[in-house]
Nucleic acid binder design. Structure first.
Lengths: 209, 209
DNA sequence: GTCTATAGCGAGATAGAC
DNA sequence: GTCTATCTCGCTATAGAC
């Protein structure tokens, strides 16, 4: 176990083991890039080690198994990608802003798309994680769409649950198409159209039936 | 080139090279299963050979490179999955029938989902194929939605192009969620809701504006 | 066409010196 | 903590006997 807390690192700013946390972070950054480019099965510890400038065995000192590294990368991606959604209909704008921000960091989308696909394979160490994550996002969006439904702004025939799962699916699917051919689809405008169709304008009261 | 037509195979039902085409088909079947379970990078020629009951080197006699096998598998998946879509609004029913049929052959969906994700990685031999395929399906669906638009049945604000790309994305994304947790989403009912929202009933004339 | 043998490489993981 | 050396394994692909 390595206990490198704030006190220790403050007391030894450039001591022999002052930067253990930074070292780990650098490894995760490199693994992020490698897994995004080659996938988990296709990426190697050696490539990660080369990128961070250390030996492959030193890397294993921090992450004893390859799967440990994968989980660290997945956790980092979540920290980068998750955004606090405002309540009510403003969450639509927040989603669209997130989409436009994502388009500037293509590597993150690549990583997510590759790992999500691999996660459905036998014995993939990221499967449980990916499954829980999708369920969590569905729940979160369901609450947002329920707010809209309560305000009479969800088109009749759409339930909050279906709208939430559809938004997640649409987003993921558009990212795949965009990665394979960036000129083919515009993720933000397609999601905007989806919102336009299932969410009614605020000033218009919902039809009685 | 191997020309094993009906005449030849009928003339030599169990001759020395009567079953060359069948042998190739058996290999592709096995590769289908292996790639679905482990992905392309994660699957191995040895696993495929074991499954088909031959040596790994004999397998290479039919498919000299691993990537050749991948392309054969992708082609087979297309043959299995593609359905002739009827003209007009009946294509909606055809899509939904295809979805319900797919749910009985989970391995096909797994294969597609894994390979689609891997296709965005560097140097993946299936990338071009997957990219073209998605573009082709978008074009096909665009024509179908244009028929509906011409009949005034596409909800205003939706274009045939956006509807088509969205349908493909939604379908792919729902399959991912379903594979990771089969109880979480029902693909057919979610797609049905999508159609209900963007396609207007046949008997209702389109609004003038 | 099918096989054994093997080349040639790279992977993940371990042992132990420093 | 970091390294070299090494183990063990599996992979794709080739050579050549039968």
């Amino acid at each position: 176990m390595t206990y490198i807390g704030a006190v220790v690192s403050a007391g030894r700013p450039r001591g022999p083991y002052a930067g253990a946390a930074e070292r780990r972070a650098a490894i995760v950054d490199a693994a992020f890039t490698v897994f995004a480019a080659h996938g988990y099965a296709g990426g190697s510890l050696q490539k990660v080690a080369d990128l961070v400038g250390m030996s492959q065995t030193s890397l294993l000192h921090y992450f004893p198994k390859k799967s440990d590294l994968l989980l660290a990368v997945l956790r980092k991606r979540d920290e980068m990608g998750e955004v606090v959604l405002p309540p009510g209909g403003a969450f639509i704008d927040a989603v669209l802003r997130q989409v436009r921000a994502n388009e500037t960091i293509q590597g993150v989308i690549e990583l997510y798309t590759v790992l999500a696909g691999e996660a459905v394979t036998r014995g993939n160490p990221g499967r449980e994680y990916m499954s829980r994550r999708l369920a969590g996002i569905r729940d979160e969006y369901t609450r947002k769409f329920r707010d809209l439904a309560d305000a009479g702004r969800l088109r009749p025939g759409m339930t909050p649950e279906v709208a939430a799962a559809s938004l997640v699916a649409l987003w993921d699917g558009l990212q795949l198409q965009w990665l394979l051919d960036p000129d083919a689809v515009d993720i933000a405008s397609h999601l905007q159209s989806f919102f336009d169709v299932i969410v009614l304008p605020a000033e218009s009261p919902a039809p009685s039936t």
